[in-house]
């Protein structure tokens, strides 16, 4: 356990030093504040609070931004150290490869968590200040959004590690990481939509659709945040989908956790067997 904590400390400190934490936090805060302040303008007398609107817009932002940040943090984690030659030295120390990977993972998730809480928290606080008390459940959905954003980020960090241990070359790993992001965040939904339209509801049942959505962590996140609360699902236009796809919040969180555990274990197994 001790070596893991030492690794966590090093990764986190390194993240603070190379301004990764500061940069990520500022980016998230700037974007979320912009969305929150612009987005809360038109709510007027609709009856939904500004905070609910903010959750919807921030969730949409997260789906694009968090996987990208997570992959950019993680693709270099192993490949970069192997490339620079620091991994060989580290492996000569009494620390196992599993401990190295776990330590890095916890460190990177901490960095992302801090950035998310500070960045999105700023928006939440700003909106609450500007608009006063939100309706019931809005604060809870905001908390769920922050929590699930961290889980989404962790899933993509784990995916980035798989790439990193597979190719062991930071440039190739970087390219593949961007490819992964494009696939999960942009192309997957477009392909799914195209498929649904082409199919006209003949073969793709609700069950198949659920599986297809669970096969992409970004979609799990979307379901979790945009359909979980009735006021938000109406607002986000996801009400139709959420009525179709009957997945409980627990199942969705479980699926997201599986998207963390499975890639991380795969990365660990590959790394443990890898010749340096």
């Amino acid at each position: 356990m001790r070596p893991v904590l030492i690794m966590v400390g090093r990764e986190f400190r390194d993240g603070l030093r190379n301004r990764r934490v500061v940069g990520t936090t500022l980016l998230m805060a700037a974007l979320s504040l912009t969305l929150a302040l612009l987005g809360s303008a038109p709510t007027g007398t609709v009856g939904t609070s500004a905070l609910s609107v903010t959750v919807v817009s921030l969730s949409s932002l997260t789906i694009f931004l968090v996987p990208l940040i997570a992959l950019l943090i993680s693709y270099d984690a192993i490949a970069g150290e192997v490339d620079r030659g620091t991994m060989l030295l580290l492996l000569s120390y009494p620390v196992t490869r599993w401990q190295i990977l776990t330590g890095k993972f916890i460190g990177h998730v901490c960095i992302l968590t801090l950035a998310t809480i500070l960045g999105y928290g700023a928006a939440g606080v700003a909106v609450s200040f500007a608009n006063g008390v939100a309706e019931q459940g809005a604060a809870a959905s905001f908390a769920v959004m922050i929590g699930s954003s961290v889980l989404l980020g962790a899933a993509f960090i784990a995916l980035g590690y798989v790439v990193s241990v597979l190719v062991l070359d930071p440039r190739t790993a970087g390219g593949i990481a961007i490819g992964l992001w494009l696939f999960f965040v942009v192309l997957y939904d477009m392909a799914l939509l195209g498929l649904l339209i082409a199919d006209q509801g003949k073969n793709i049942t609700t069950g198949v659709l659920s599986v297809m959505l669970l096969a992409n962590p970004a979609d799990i996140y979307r379901l979790l945040n945009l359909t979980g609360f009735s006021n938000i699902s109406t607002l986000s236009g996801m009400a139709g989908l959420s009525a179709q796809v009957m997945l409980s919040g627990t199942a969705l969180v479980g699926a997201l956790v599986a998207w963390i555990v499975v890639p991380l274990s795969a990365a660990g197994l590959i790394f443990a067997r890898r010749q340096m």
Binding site: P3, I6, R10, R17, R84, G85, L89, Y93
Partner: peptide, 26 residues
């Protein structure tokens, strides 16, 4: 062990680098 072309995280100080490795070695 001293590897060929040793590299350390550029933003860490010499003392920090050494204490990281000392702690790993207990």
């Amino acid at each position: 062990f001293l590897p060929e072309n040793v590299v350390f995280p550029p933003s860490m100080t010499g003392a920090e680098v050494l204490s990281f490795y000392a702690r790993l070695k207990r």
